[in-house]
Amino acid sequence: MEHSQTPHKDTAHSKEDGLYLTLFTSTFKISACTFGGGFVIIPLLRKKFVDELHWIEEDEMLDLTAIAQSSPGAIAVNASIVIGYHVAGIPGALISILGTVLPPLIIISVISRFYAVFRDNAYVSMAMEGMLAGVAAVITDVVWNMGSDVVRTKNPVRIVMLILSFIAVRYLKLNIILLILLCGTIGAAETVMRQRAEKERGW
């Protein structure tokens, strides 16, 4: 299968009327209906842009997803940027960011405005207390799943990093940005060394 070398900004779609509008309404609608973050939004974007609109090829979508997941920031935003860029270049990226960011911006602005009033209500406060226990459970479940993935790799470096990082953040109060930079460097060094070792074994 032949890959296009550049995003489709010069192809026929950009001349179609309403390309930007479709891009905006699609990302807006998907963002407004996506609860539970990045890993949920990618299948929805795929369904829209690969299956319905046919703007992106199936295997290109996989690579675009990898870019979205490899970049810092919210996966939902990253996925929109990379799809918008693929479909209509930089303006496309800006429009799909707007579509993705507006729904939460509007919803949370409204909630935030009434937050103080809501929070003083006894029943709201009880519901929040119950839901906080729920969030704690959801996050524990997520950490449990992610942690057992790491343990299952049986890579001792990663398991030790997991334990040391937890101690560093929780008890030594290490600055987390410093920790990320440190572990990113270790991760990159480990990858380079492993690739070099594999290459030597190959020769």
């Binding site: 490899s70 950490v143 992610m146 990663r158 990093m161 990320i180 990159a188 990858t191 690739q195």
Partner: peptide, 12 residues
């Protein structure tokens, strides 16, 4: 590869 190395820290 770098991200895979970063993963344990992120989980922690």
């Amino acid at each position: 590869g770098m991200l895979a190395g970063l993963r344990p820290a992120v989980i922690a």
